[in-house]
Design a binder for these strands. Structure first.
Lengths: 124, 124
DNA sequence: CATTGACCTAGAGTATGCTCTAGCTTTTAT
DNA sequence: ATAAAAGCTAGAGCATACTCTAGGTCAATG
């Protein structure tokens, strides 16, 4: 498939797709006789995966490191697994932090609501 | 307290503290006769709160908007409350997203482990 | 056969959130 | 009293992750 089509399916811009290739997040894409990129359908699965890494705040640097290992083939599965496990650790910490931030935010909102009720009471 | 002291207590750099004042995230700080900043202890509570907003990915723009309302006093409690409720909504969505990303990551790691065992089996 | 639209490259520009520099003044410790 | 440490301003610089521009090529359509 051509880049425009992939952009639609992946929700990434054409610019971003070319950029990802340039920085090595996507392997060099096959070109047809007119030097236009022809993507394999598989790319969508990879883009979905790196989307997950991005959503979970893995920096591009780390994603690229992972991509390079992936490009080397199955012998790097151990290393990739390690990266994912490290990343998962960070996510679990982020999850705990987020949970506690949510609780704190809810508590703060509660207090504000009580203050508002307090203000109303003064006026009645 | 002077800026160096506050930097230590808040874990923000001196540069960042001055920057936060410049952009209006911290109200204009009292200056002594030598134009050096003298912070009130209260600032720490505010810094702790905006740290929470930052940790939860509220952009500086939004934090500044909140700060301006806070500076106006108690009449803005309703508006601030709305901002926090909107933000909380985003956090809850982020929480769900994170939970599902964690699950997906765990599943992927599981699969990798099975592949590794598979590889070992081939070699024995 | 010409024009429109999709594609190409290289490189510049943007947004966010700091972070640091230069050049100077004030404070503090010996 | 003097030197090191801490503070000041204005503005430049940096890292990340895109995003867009200029100036072209190529393919399909009326």
């Amino acid at each position: 498939m051509k880049i425009g089509q992939l952009a639609k399916l992946s929700n990434l811009s054409i610019h971003t797709l070319r950029y990802y290739e340039k920085i090595g997040l996507i392997e060099k894409v096959y070109r047809n006789q007119s030097k236009q990129r022809e993507y394999d359908d598989d790319i969508l699965i990879w883009l979905e995966f790196i989307n997950r890494l991005r959503e979970t705040n893995m920096p591009l640097k780390g994603q690229i490191e992972y991509a390079k290992l992936r490009a080397k083939g199955n012998t790097t599965i151990g290393q990739r697994c390690e990266i994912l496990e490290d990343h998962l650790q960070k996510l679990i910490i982020a999850q705990q932090k987020l949970n506690s931030n949510i609780k704190a935010m809810e508590a703060k909102i509660q207090i504000y609501h009580q203050l508002e009720i307090g203000n109303e009471t003064k006026h009645t």
